[in-house]
Simulated scan of single mutants.
Amino acid sequence: MKRLLIIGIGAGDPDHLTLGAVKAIAATDVFFIVDKGEVKHDLVRLRLDLIAEHGRAPYRIAEARDPERDRDAAAYTAAVDDWRSRRALACEALIRDELADGQTGAFLVWGDPGVYDSTLAIVEEILDRGNVTFDYEVVPGVSSVAALTAAHRTSLTRVGRPVHLTTGRRLAEHGPTADDVVVMLDAHCSFAGLDDYSIHWGAYLGTPDELLVSGPVSEVGERIRELRAEARARKGWIMDTYLLRRTAPEDPGAAGAFG
């Protein structure tokens, strides 16, 4: 039976790698890398550096090109599903053609595989098709949420209050549904106008390019918007996360719920 490891490698700092992840990398025969192209080569380079430091020879690296995703499609969910299925086909080919029976392959996943990542869903889709069989294990990693709160020296939760984990798109559509809201990858800075909230924002967390801003949305919102636009123009990509916190919390029973 082929064996597959889904290894969380943290938010960007090589020191975020857990001892479990180090052991998993050392046990891997074939590393699978899905390349997002030259613009996001930084993401590939970090993976290669971790493999070079912690992998045990002889190992191999097998690469595939990440399919393009239609980011302007009106039907967002359908567009993501289509991209995910095409990515699953590329990953299936890697596992089928590059990994022999009895060997261990690995995908190194940014952050934590269980937080805002598609790898686990892709693996299940491959298994459901039945063209290739394998056993797999998930190795957790330091998520961008954990890296964010650590960088800002704040806690994720407050006593007796829920935290809502959501996306910028959902925040723009529905607004905040709790006193404390974590927002992932908000291209449109949907926090604008939420003047009864403070914000802890971070981009490129754990990397030399890390950016951090915190304060009342009314005071720092425009600065975040400008920093985000400048950074994206300079690097060609950006990954950011932020925590919104209502400055005058409502009664916990009247606030929203986990999402």
Rank of each mutant, 00 (worst) to 15 (best):
R169Y: 07
T177W: 09
L127P: 00
A147E: 02
A151N: 05
V182I: 15
R153H: 05
I126N: 02
P140A: 09
R129F: 06
S198H: 14
G141Y: 08
A147M: 02
E226K: 14
A150H: 02
D135R: 13
V138H: 06
F191S: 12
E210R: 15
V132R: 12
H200A: 15
V183Y: 09
A147Q: 04
T154L: 04
H174W: 10
V145T: 09
H200C: 14
L212A: 07
R228F: 09
F134K: 07
V145I: 10
D209N: 14
I126F: 08
G130I: 07
A192D: 13
G193R: 13
L185F: 14
V181S: 11
V138A: 03
G141P: 00
V159A: 06
A150R: 05
F191G: 14
A203C: 09
E219P: 05
A187L: 12
R161L: 01
P176T: 07
P216Q: 12
R228W: 08
V220E: 04
V139G: 01
T166I: 02
L212P: 02
L212Y: 10
P216N: 11
A151R: 09
N131V: 00
G202N: 11
R170Q: 08
I126C: 05
G141D: 01
S155F: 08
F191K: 11
D196F: 12
R228D: 04
T149R: 09
D180G: 10
V182L: 14
P208L: 04
Y197P: 02
C189R: 15
